[in-house]
Design a protein around this nucleic acid. Structure first.
Lengths: 155, 155
DNA sequence: TATTAAACGATAATTATTCTCCTTTGTCAA
DNA sequence: TTGACAAAGGAGAATAATTATCGTTTAATA
């Protein structure tokens, strides 16, 4: 998404693939380009539908496989931190969360512990904001200790 | 979660069930109480494991069914807005999102359009914050128009 | 306490995702 | 260029999360 001009964007993509040692297949380029051009941050299924117009024989498995590869090599980012399984809470009062990106633990962040969230400009045409949800993403004490231990035992 | 004393909390729960016309079963009370007492905002599976200690015969389906009922009646809240399917983006520069709670569309919110996010106090013991992710939850223009239309045709 | 709709439990079905295995295609050295 | 080989693709099976179905049990209330 970063560069506006598609050619430059794809050139950067090809360069990154070379850096990371990823073979530059037709499928990969079409998948990456499709995702970059789609607003609304699509699901794998949605990407598949678009990509299929250019490569009718592509399989959904290939789309999943490459998205995962791109995520692992830092070419893409996942918008949905807690996709995969639903997470619930009984605390109905407005508040935010600390989220451990390793173990996915979620802890409450009370709104009074945060500077008020506020837009400086209007939302996109016609969007009506109802509430803000802030996630302080990071690593919890337990996971930090675990990775410390792992590092120490390795060295 | 709101009231600290379990008795008061469960009394409120029973009252809410009566209000909403939900039968007050043993299972429901144990499920709700388990979730309320669990930190870390558990998954249905995690709740099931706890509840099973008190009602070994309970089925996972019952846990799911009741969690959904509680969500629908506003007794619980879902922490994971985009659970169910992964959502991706190629924009790797730090930014936030507008999210339509109806159609789940996601649009970028550039950090310069938002007052800076900042904690007033330290995070919970040992938690290391890496970045903030802000979601402006609301309803997009298309879904707003759709619900307007639906309302008009009804009246 | 009897009636009845709502809820439960077991299990089948569905959906999202990953894995397996065989075939095809990039990559790189000669 | 071309040939060898590892990496990637395609088809479809397997798995995980969730929902639906259906006969039995239970809570609400008359």
């Amino acid at each position: 998404m970063e560069p506006r001009e598609p050619d430059r964007r794809m050139e950067l993509f090809r360069q990154k693939c070379r850096e990371k040692g990823l073979a530059l297949t037709h499928q990969r380029q079409v998948i990456y380009e499709a995702l970059s051009q789609m607003e609304h941050h699509p699901s794998p299924e949605a990407i598949y539908e678009v990509v299929r117009k250019q490569i009718p024989s592509i399989s959904l498995g290939t789309v999943y496989k490459n998205l995962k590869t791109f995520l692992d090599t830092g070419l893409l980012r996942e918008v949905s931190v807690h996709h995969g399984t639903i997470r619930l809470e009984a605390n109905m009062s407005p508040h935010h969360h600390f989220v451990c990106t390793q173990c996915k633990a979620i802890m409450d962040l009370e709104p009074e512990d945060l500077e008020p969230v506020k837009l400086k400009r209007k939302p996109p045409k016609g969007f009506r904001v109802q509430r803000f949800s802030v996630e302080a993403l990071g690593i919890c004490a337990a996971c930090l200790a675990k990775s410390e231990r792992a590092r120490r035992s390795k060295s």
